[in-house]
Amino acid sequence: MAGVQVGKRIIGADAPVTVGWENIGRVEGGPIKQFVFTYFQPAMLLLAIGFWYYAPNWLAVASTAIAIRLGWTVLLLVLEWVNPRYSSWQLTWKEFATDAFYVALGMTFLRMVDSYVGDGAIIAAVQDAFDWDKFSWFTGLPLLVQAVLISMIFDFGQYWMHRAMHNWYPLWLTHAPHHYITQLNINKGAVGNPVELFLIGLGIGGFFDFLPRAFLLAGAIGMTVGIYQHINVRFNTPRWWRYIFNTTEHHSVHHSQDYEATRSNYSGTWIIWDRIFGTCVDGEAELLGMEGGRRMDIGETMVFPFREGWRSTKAALSRRLSGGAAVQPQLEPAE
């Protein structure tokens, strides 16, 4: 495969990747379908912002956000069914049940563990230790500015954590299971080893004091932008949107079976971070996964970082102890 040169890199040499907006697929169907799948994303973003901006205080609470999130997930599942991007990514009962298991694990077990060791606990400990006042000036900013800043700062942290995961072997071991997904569906973001989900959840935004409403607005931006990175829906995404926001097209490139392609599009919500730091590749891919698309089951996902970490450590030790003679194959930090 020849691949396409993007900057100094050749994208698509190992596996097919479509590079360039002019080459990606479009919504097929009549004018109403075209209209709906062109303006759905911006319309929902405006609706969510409008709701959280004006909702009375009794309604602007976390439980409302959870209820909306549930309904929103169901709506997006319907969209996947009505207008899939690739039929090869169609959700099956087994895939749905598997994805739901990871989501459920995040809502129960991981949340319990996170309350002791997550970023909230760490930030509280740091603040207690130094008796810092939070950055209280932040709450005086207009709500939408606060929300955009919270979202961008959190995403900035995610960008670098994610990029580090693709470049440093111990971190890669935690992230690798997520790259074994072979199709994108809306709950696939939760699929992965719990250690990774804990690491990616670490944010520096917590140091800022903010109004609860601004936090809910930031959540609404994540819910109506970041959610689309793992979705099997064909949209005619507006140009301005895909210039600043991450899309399913960007993220499918990141999940491609092509090694170079996976080293791009690290951000969660704001693809502008990738543009600034030189890792953005505009395009899309259908063939996803690792090892030629081998599916990783739940059991292996849970033990993978520890098993591979142990094997690599053992191999490194045996190399050192035997004076570098015994070279054993080890898993490459692929992306």
Partner: peptide, 14 residues
Amino acid sequence: KLNPVDEFLGAPAP
């Protein structure tokens, strides 16, 4: 307190 911009636009006060 809300920023004056938000007060003008009518967002509920904290």
